[in-house]
């Protein structure tokens, strides 16, 4: 205050800059002090990230993700949109998901289903990636006897690995076959142990037993009965990546750029735009599950 330079800063200028600075301090959420209260918060412009139509979809989605992450969890609505016209059926999403979540054999969060339509020579094939639909009305949740699966504050259907008793009731309840059971197998099981010649299971296992980070916990599939072995598992929109500002692995890796992800409560977001397309559909709508995964056909 004692700096003579301040005299030259007029009130208007000051308020503007003060707005920005205080918004920053607020964002830090540390010792708010009186400064926050003192400044008219209309002047604290909300942080906005530039993302426009025409820019690369990933850039845009990432910017929108940052924006959404600044909201309270309950105020955002994660949805996924998959453009079937762009899906080339490569299954990169399937495998990136396997890698990201260290999925064991037989556990799959996002298989790509293929169907042939038509008669030669007027025939085509469709490819339909199928993650968990993260239903707003999920049939899997009410059936769980121990409330190990529930919709979290983001609206994503999650599984508490430490609570799940492995009864698989939810698996039978899901109309989309989105849930699979972790039987405890590893890919490297059954490898001959040719001593000193080939790698063998023990070494290779090492990689498979390394922890994944689902739900932001380190789950190593270390023992026979340690979770997530003996649990039901499913797609969770890569919540652990979202928490760090990264898009789900399937969305990032998609080589046809067919998968979109974002906050549908943000009316300016790409997914909001896509969900309003005339060619949008959801799987098994008649069941009233209200899926959060939309398909463009």
């Amino acid at each position: 205050m004692s700096n003579p330079a301040t005299a030259t800063v007029d009130r208007r200028t000051f308020l503007k800059s003060a707005g920005a600075a205080v918004a920053f301090v607020t964002a830090l959420n540390t010792e708010p002090g009186r400064a926050v209260a003192a400044v008219d918060d209309r002047l604290a412009a909300p942080p906005s990230v530039e993302a426009k139509k025409g820019s690369d979809t990933l850039l845009r989605m990432q910017a929108e993700l940052q924006r959404a992450l600044q909201k309270k969890p309950g105020e955002r609505r994660w949805v996924m949109v998959i453009d079937l016209r762009k899906c080339v059926g490569c299954s990169a999403c399937t495998i990136s998901c396997v890698a990201e979540n260290k999925l064991p054999p037989g556990v799959v969060y996002r298989p790509v289903m293929e169907q042939e339509i038509g008669t030669y020579p007027n025939v085509t094939r469709t490819f339909l990636p199928k993650p968990c639909m993260q239903c707003d009305n999920p049939p899997c949740v009410p059936v769980c006897p121990v409330e190990a699966t529930y919709k979290d504050e983001n609206g994503v259907v999650v599984i508490d690995y430490d609570q799940c008793i492995g009864c698989r009731y939810c698996v039978t309840a899901c109309p989309y076959a989105a849930r699979t059971f972790d039987f405890g197998a590893t890919y490297t099981r059954g490898t001959a142990e040719a001593e000193g010649v080939i790698v063998g299971q023990a070494t290779a296992d090492n990689y498979e037993r390394a922890a994944n980070f689902e739900y932001r916990e380190a789950y190593a599939r270390a023992g026979r009965d340690e979770s997530p072995i003996g649990n039901v598992r499913k797609c969770h929109f890569c919540l652990h990546r979202l928490a760090e500002g990264m898009l789900p692995a399937c969305t990032t890796t998609c080589i046809g750029r067919a998968t979109f992800f974002g906050d549908a409560n943000d009316t300016d977001s790409l997914v909001s735009e896509l969900v309003a397309s005339p060619n949008v559909m959801r799987l098994k709508e008649d069941l009233g599950t209200e899926p959060r995964v939309y398909y463009l056909t």
């Binding site: 690369d56 299954s91 990169a92 495998i95 890698a99 080939i198 070494t203 290779a204 296992d205």
Partner: peptide
């Protein structure tokens, strides 16, 4: 982050740690 990667690229660790 405009890059992408096919399933084989994603499966690289399993080639490295092939038993």
């Amino acid at each position: 982050d405009g890059a992408a990667m096919c399933p084989k690229g994603n499966a690289g660790p399993m080639a490295l740690y092939d038993p």
